[in-house]
Design a protein around this nucleic acid. Sequence first.
DNA 1: CTGTTAGCGCATTCAA
DNA 2: TTGAATGCGCTAACAG
Lengths: 335, 335
Amino acid sequence: MEKKMPTIKEIARKLNISVSTVSRALHDHPSIGLRTKMQVKKLAAEMNYEPNQAAIQFKQGKTNTIGLILPNLREEYFYLAINGVEEVAFRNNYNVLISQSHDELAREEKIVEILRRNRIDGVLVSISKQTTHIDHFRQLARFNIPVVFFDRVPDVPGIHSVWCSLYHSTINAIKFLVEKGHKRIGYIQGPPTLNIKNERLEGYYDAHKALGLPAKESLVVTTDLLRSGNEAAMLKLLSLKEKPTAILAFNDNVALDALQVAKKKKLKINRDLSVVSYANWPVTDYLDYPPIASVEQFPFKQGVRATELLFKLLEKPGDLQPYENVVLESELIIH
Amino acid sequence: MEKKMPTIKEIARKLNISVSTVSRALHDHPSIGLRTKMQVKKLAAEMNYEPNQAAIQFKQGKTNTIGLILPNLREEYFYLAINGVEEVAFRNNYNVLISQSHDELAREEKIVEILRRNRIDGVLVSISKQTTHIDHFRQLARFNIPVVFFDRVPDVPGIHSVWCSLYHSTINAIKFLVEKGHKRIGYIQGPPTLNIKNERLEGYYDAHKALGLPAKESLVVTTDLLRSGNEAAMLKLLSLKEKPTAILAFNDNVALDALQVAKKKKLKINRDLSVVSYANWPVTDYLDYPPIASVEQFPFKQGVRATELLFKLLEKPGDLQPYENVVLESELIIH
DNA sequence: CTGTTAGCGCATTCAA
DNA sequence: TTGAATGCGCTAACAG
């Protein structure tokens, strides 16, 4: 029973050649005898040799790994983003180190520290809902570790970012509802920290203005995204003297909780009340009365684009590159 | 603008002391002058020094990282397992390297190779549905990298494992349905590769036997777990001359698809047809007619127990330890 | 085509 | 209490 993983040194000794020859053989270096090369490769395979990545990383000062920081791994939304990231990363022979901030700033800072210790080559991040400053990410940039923000992007200059604009889709969503005959549309918004670029609300108001519809402030309520908060927000809307007949919900989770509340209140879904939401949890297929439309934000594509941008930064030397901000466009999907 | 991450060597030079002194100071080594120690720590903080983990790993031959291989990151089930693993790992100052096999053997083997190159200290794995041999994991064990299988565990001797037994809960599920008055209960099973220990089916048959109920073979159908397969399986059951009045579904996904089919066939859920499933996707809260009961497999707890076992193996030297197989008990949850 | 050697950052053993 | 020296596995520059 073997114990330790073999090294090129052992291979060299067994073959009575030098370690550099072994190294070259394994790397298909041009100046190497075919015979020697074959011998080495054969023995390496027999011994189950695997190069010690830690040693290579150490020597080269490069880890071939990028860090991916997400708020959580629960939402299918982020799962799709991961797949986008991994696809591009693997194509470039990079590993992806996934971690979740659990939407806590302290955790996010801790993760950045760990990534820095591990000399990760670059970082992709969708910030936590507690993240009010990005000093920890600036720190990375200062040491020439490129950082690309995506999806949940802080609204400050001097960063690279990829995100999906919600403004036009929100306008389309409101138009869609108004065309369906709705005159009072409630909006359940997320917590202030997630309304970074407040496109949902802007779209909501601008659409109302454009359509000549009054947008009462009482129709906009806020949730902390917990189930209790979602329900409370919905109850608040339903307790208005002039109840909304349609709801724009911050995301699918909010929408589902809102629908539950509506059903408990004996409202008939899609007659008394319709819901449109921003997609993050595509479970709606299985509902009897799902949201009638969703704003799709293409997390997979965002992941791909963000990673491509990161690799572009990784390839180029130095940090003199202009900050790049890629904006994708969301889409209103009518079910 | 700084470029490179500082090293202890630079700190030593700036302070005109030796690197070993710096190293000791940063590690709170007992034999170090308080004054020197403070100086070093102060400068290190100012320079934003972070130890080069790659160098430490290289030097120590230890990465303080465990690999976690999962079939996917889509199911909330695995998300909960991850949280269990991370909790224990972080408590032990370990990092977790998460990767998905996407239920492909080739991918799983590739991941194992990468983990081996990275000299991961230990591995936790829930095998892919294609995994018919575990040579690649034996390889790890051979080099003293402990492997703990959990949740989806191969049915072979000579491994460490943590899993959740489904036998008794399945019996309880059938009993529960029979007590509700059902006489024909269909079972939609997963693909052969996932019926490793075939507890669901055994429980299904044994319960029938114990209750003196005939279990016709036509009541057992198979799906590949794709939506199309789930629907086909359900249609097959519904096309029987003697239709089942209740269904035991391999998991929530299967249950949801089955329910959809039933609804399309105008069956009244919970009157014409009831469904019980094995929980992996707790979305059922939001359904109008969810499964009436679920078998809970406690993924978080499985993750915790598996990781604890792994650390136990990591602590002990050598590989002479007896193989440990932890079996948790699932639970029938009635909604 | 192949061998020799240096050095990456750090912890650690041995001396002082 | 501190310094000097060593070596972990590997790559690459240089010498032959």
